[in-house]
């Protein structure tokens, strides 16, 4: 540490600027020379240090600082790598979830369409047949017509319409004066059936000897079957939600 340069309060101080100016006069005294040399060393050192610091700030750090720096950088890198892995996992989860959601939605929509057609809730179209049973004498019994329906179902009819009524699994046909009663509605001759399914199979099934149409003809009715590439079944039926039956939870099935 340098020696103390205490204030000299005893004598009145001369004008400090004059003191400076006198000291600045170039005189080849020993003090001036020594001071000059020391100042040169100082300037040299300052410049060298500044240059070194500017060229490579890390090179002037000591070892433990460098080690700490390296530790910090390594720890930062590890944290960032962890974050990357975490975010990537989240992204994968989200992608998988959205895929699963979409698949579930597609499956649900498909199932809804299939069940809507089977339950008679949705209009349907496709290849099928048109079957007209004329019974002017009201001699064909409801059971005979029901046999026709059963035959259509056996032949693979997927949607059936009788007159303006959609025929479903719960439909019934009973005798009534002047015709038959279908699901509570009176239907009169001629009975016009529309069925969607394989036209050839249904035509063949209806026409076999001793089959449904033969019974109708024996009873006194006339029949005509017209296969078509496009049969449109527009009648729909409102389906009530089941009051008593509920689905079995999935984990108890099987």
């Amino acid at each position: 540490m340098p020696p103390d340069h205490r204030l000299a309060n005893e004598e009145p101080a001369p004008n400090p600027w004059r003191v400076l100016a006198r000291a600045a006069m170039p005189r080849a005294t020993r003090g001036q020379l020594l001071t000059g040399v020391l100042c040169a060393v100082l300037g040299f050192a300052v410049v060298v240090q500044v240059q070194a610091n500017r060229a490579d700030p890390l090179s002037t750090l000591r070892q433990d600082e460098l080690v700490r720096l390296l530790d910090d950088v390594t720890r930062n890198g590890e944290q960032l790598a962890d974050q990357v892995a975490e975010l990537r996992g989240q992204r994968n989860d989200l992608v998988t979830a959205s895929d699963g959601d979409r698949a579930a939605r597609d499956a649900a929509r498909e199932r809804a369409e299939v069940q809507g057609i089977l339950a008679g809730r949705l209009p349907a179209e496709g290849p099928g047949i048109e079957l007209v049973i004329a019974d002017p004498g009201d001699e064909v019994a409801a059971t005979t017509l029901y046999t026709v329906l059963e035959e259509l179902r056996n032949a693979g009819a997927e949607a059936v319409q009788l007159a303006d009524l959609r025929i479903t699994a719960s439909s019934y046909i009973v005798d009534a004066p002047g015709g038959v009663e279908v699901d509570g509605v009176l239907v009169e001759s001629p009975y016009r059936w529309l069925a969607i399914g394989d036209p050839d199979t249904m035509t063949t099934a209806l026409g076999i000897p001793g089959g449904a149409l033969a019974v109708v003809r024996n009873a006194g009715g006339t029949t005509s079957v017209t296969p078509s590439d496009l049969v449109q079944i527009t009648a729909v039926r409102a389906v009530d939600a089941p009051r008593y039956a509920t689905p079995v939870p999935a984990d108890e099935v099987g």
Binding site: P26, C39, F44
Partner: peptide, 13 residues
């Protein structure tokens, strides 16, 4: 001379 020395040292550096 001190100032000159400072400048000279800096230039040498």
């Amino acid at each position: 001379i001190a100032l000159i020395g400072l400048v000279v040292g800096a230039v040498i550096g």
